[in-house]
Design a protein around this nucleic acid. Structure first.
Length: 142
RNA sequence: GAGGAGGCGCAGGCGGUUGCGAAUUGCCAAGGAACCCCCGUUAAAAGGAAACCUGAAGCAGUUUGAGGAAAGUCCGGGCUUCCGAAAGGCCAAACUUGCUGGGUAACGCCCAGUGCGAGCGAUCGUGAGGAUAGUGCCACAGAAACAUACCGCCGAUGGAGCUAGGCUGCUAUUCAUGUAGCGGCUGUGGCUAUCAGGUAAGGGUGCAAGGGUGCGGUAAGAGCGCACCAGCAGCGUCGAGAGGCGCUGGCUCGGUAAACCCCGGUUGGAAGCAAGGUUGAAGGAGCGAUCGGUUGGUCUUUUUCCGGCUCCGAGUAGAGGAGGAGAAAUCCUGCUUCUGCGAAAUCCGCUAGAGGUGUCUGGUGACAGGCAUCCCAGAUAGAUAACUGCCUUUUGGGUGGCUCUGCCAUUCAGAUAACAGAACCCGGCUUAUGUCCGCCUCUUCCCGC
RNA sequence: GCUCCAGUAGCUCAGAUGGAUAGAGCAAUUGCCUUCUAAGCAAUCGGUCACAGGUUCGAGUCCUGUCUGGGGCG
């Protein structure tokens, strides 16, 4: 990872939570799944979903604590060769890192790579990522 | 110079901007803490504390960070747990290993050799035990595919009197020999029939038909005899052995075991680092200080002793709290114990190894041994990078020079790194792969001297 | 990490113990039928049996090694 560890999305729970209730945007080669993060204290009783307005109040105070976390999902259907998949991941991370200063904190993001992205270069990924993040209002429009 | 065979090496280099993991050092929040201060047995509160220890996150420095295949998972190990057994033998089972000798921790791997096959050769390939232990199969064709005889050849016994002959009678003709016609006898050759005849030379069929070629031999034939070749057996000799060479012998046995099988060989089995352990969220079960009884039951190895559990009796009042009449239920807490990664949690396992490099010695070699030296990835939604400049190499064009079918210099344009990503660790095998990549040895042909 | 299965015509599948020229349905092409089309009928076309090597007289089938695709378990 060309990202520091606390910018990475690491737990299986986080991924499944994002897939379950996150918003969705997509371009030709990428799909964005994003979830606005709730504070770490109320993360545990998330499934009971009874303490919604309490956590919403806390959110405004504590959203600045946790930075935005990124996870990348790329299937074997995109390419059977691990080298190709890893290269795409690294390029996406590099693009994300370049956009990091403009990104709001407190989000959890998963980027799903679609088949056909094998031919893309760094510039294309940067453009598509920027488009997605602006559409999802994770990033300042500039 | 052209073509070919074998082997080895490398896995482009130097930067720029922005970054990541690990180790380590320092700084640092915070905690612990000897101690200081305070107090003076009616006490030890509050406060301080850069001796020292721990040290999250962060910052800074230093070091370091994918492969020859990290891949496929086709073999062999190490390591770990469980089951079984505990040493050896026999049987069974499994493996599916199978020329010989060696190497190795081990191997289905490697090295050296033998036989066979391919190539002019360098070299290459080889799943290379047994077909008289038994069973099965060998389509079609063919008489017959494992034990038979279709045609043919030969023999024996017959038949007809057709045919070629032999002997002979009559008639015609001729001077005569003879010739022609019609008969008779014979059974040599042919024809034909038969033989539970002989034969395996020849024909035909087929991948394959009972060793091959030649001479003799025989009624015809045949290893029936001989010579040479191939194969088999025995002996001698060389070799550690597979085998090589030589001599002798009786002459002969289809193929298929990558069909079943037989023989030999090997082997505890199963799972795999998501092994397995530590901490432990969560869940289940439970919680009594002490003494006595062996007539009981059961477990630890049969017996004895000792001991554990259970049982019976005494006794105390039964973890703490709430609750209640309470030693009840129920709830919370604590403790004991069991389960416990789908809580894909933490840490360990986790990288010093059948290790790398250099050198010497032994060995034809695989390899082994000695000495010196080095420490060289440990991630876990998975680091080792993203973008980019120049060089290198090379192709084409232009210009210039020279010793001019070329070479050198310069310039412009293009191409320029393939295959591929550690996931517990090693040894092999296999597969993928190159910027016109580089190097060495050998071989064949051509040209020149 | 472990493990199983498949690969045969454009598609979906047969092909049991090796035997001659590898079949079926659909599709395609042509013809018939019909005013025309569909349906129907008839014929035709189409195969490196995934690849390479081997055993055998002979291999889709047996053996060995690869490649590709798909599934299962922890």
């Amino acid at each position: 990872m060309a990202l520091p560890k606390h910018y990475r999305l690491r737990k299986r729970q986080d991924f499944s939570a994002i897939y379950r209730s996150g918003l969705r945007q997509s371009t030709v080669h990428l799909t964005l799944r994003a979830l606005r993060q709730i504070s770490p204290q109320s993360l545990a009783p998330l499934s009971r979903s009874s303490t919604s307005h309490q956590s919403a109040e806390r959110f405004t105070e504590e959203s600045s604590l946790r930075p935005t976390q990124l996870g990348i999902s790329i299937s074997q259907k995109v390419s059977k060769r691990a080298v190709v998949r890893n290269r795409i991941k690294r390029r996406l991370r590099a693009a994300f890192r370049a956009l990091l200063p403009q990104i709001l904190s407190g989000w959890q993001i998963v980027i799903v790579v679609k088949p056909g992205a094998t031919q893309c270069d760094y510039e294309q990924f940067l453009q598509e990522l920027k488009q997605l993040l602006i559409k999802a209002e994770v990033m300042h429009g500039g």
